Simulated assay, not measured.
Amino acid sequence: DEWTYEHIAYRNPDRWGTARDVDGDSVFAAADAAYPSVWDTVDRGTGETVCVPRTPGPVLYGVRGDDPPDCRAAAARIEGEAVARARLFVTNQGTDAHLLDGDIPNAADGRSYRLDGTVASPPESREGGHVFFGLADGSSRIRCVAFEPTKRFREHVRRLRVGDEVTVCGEVAAGTLKLEKLAVRGLCRVEAVTPTCPDCGRTMESAGSGQGYRCRDCGTAADGREQRPLERTIQVGWYEVPPRARRHVAKPLVRGGFDAPVHPER
């Protein structure tokens, strides 16, 4: 079994329900000093202090990591209101303990999976900023979504193309997998395009169903579409949502143990 640790600092009871007084600069300095042993303390892309809760409650902050002394040391660097008490907990946070190895035909709502497949429909940005694409395994398909709060992760999703081979991770709800991370296994390197005329350089037009293409000016013909090299802006490897959007149980790429190159978010 894999375990991680969380150092939780608690507020004085008379402060419960009031705005937390935590110095953001000190949180970022603590995160920089302890990374990568301590992770998901901040989100450097958005400037958020992820370890500080936004909801009312007794917790002032929680520092998660792989090594208890490093968690305590990072917490000691954080400045702010007085800490009433602190405790270190052994947890399954950051372990992917929730993920099951599955396949698309048998993926059930309410469970979280790793699923292999081929991108079957191009990424589509919809109202609210969510990005959807279809994933197929033979004749079976599932819809995948990167929700708006995943922010910059959506840019990686938008770079996928039909034919790319990927592994997706996340919870299935209403037949849709909510992306937590994905691995690009293989990239489609060519695309089928309408042929151009070798004489005049213009794009040919369809000559009719099953009759190929023809240049209306020169009369040249082609049997079908031609293959053109496709320049890709995404690499093979693992991509993840940023710390601000990560479930506590989801494993950050920086923790290692993945089966392909990783592109961690900080």
Rank of each mutant, 00 (worst) to 15 (best):
A9W: 01
Y10V: 00
D23Q: 12
F28K: 09
F28G: 10
A29F: 03
A29L: 13
D40W: 02
V50P: 02
R54C: 11
R54T: 15
P56F: 10
D66H: 06
R72I: 00
R72P: 00
R77D: 10
G80C: 05
A82G: 13
A84H: 10
R85P: 00
R87G: 00
L88S: 05
L88A: 06
F89N: 00
T91N: 03
N92L: 12
L99R: 01
L100P: 15
I104C: 03
I104L: 05
A108H: 13
D109W: 07
R111V: 02
S112E: 07
L115F: 04
D116G: 12
T118Q: 14
E124R: 15
E124F: 13
E127D: 14
E127N: 13
E127Y: 05
G128Q: 05
G128F: 08
G138A: 02
G138F: 02
S140N: 12
V145Q: 10
F147V: 13
T150Y: 03
V162K: 07
C169D: 05
A173G: 04
K178V: 10
L179V: 01
E180P: 00
K181W: 06
L182P: 00
A183W: 02
A183L: 13
C188D: 10
V190Y: 08
V193A: 14
V193E: 14
T194D: 03
C197A: 04
C197N: 00
P198Q: 10
G201Q: 06
E205T: 13
S206F: 01
G208C: 05
S209V: 13
S209W: 15
C218Y: 01
G219L: 06
G224R: 14
E226W: 09
Q227Y: 12
E231I: 14
I234M: 09
W238K: 03
E240C: 09
R244L: 13
R244T: 14
R247W: 12
L253K: 04
G256F: 11
G257L: 09
G257T: 04
F258G: 09
F258T: 11
D259M: 05
D259A: 09
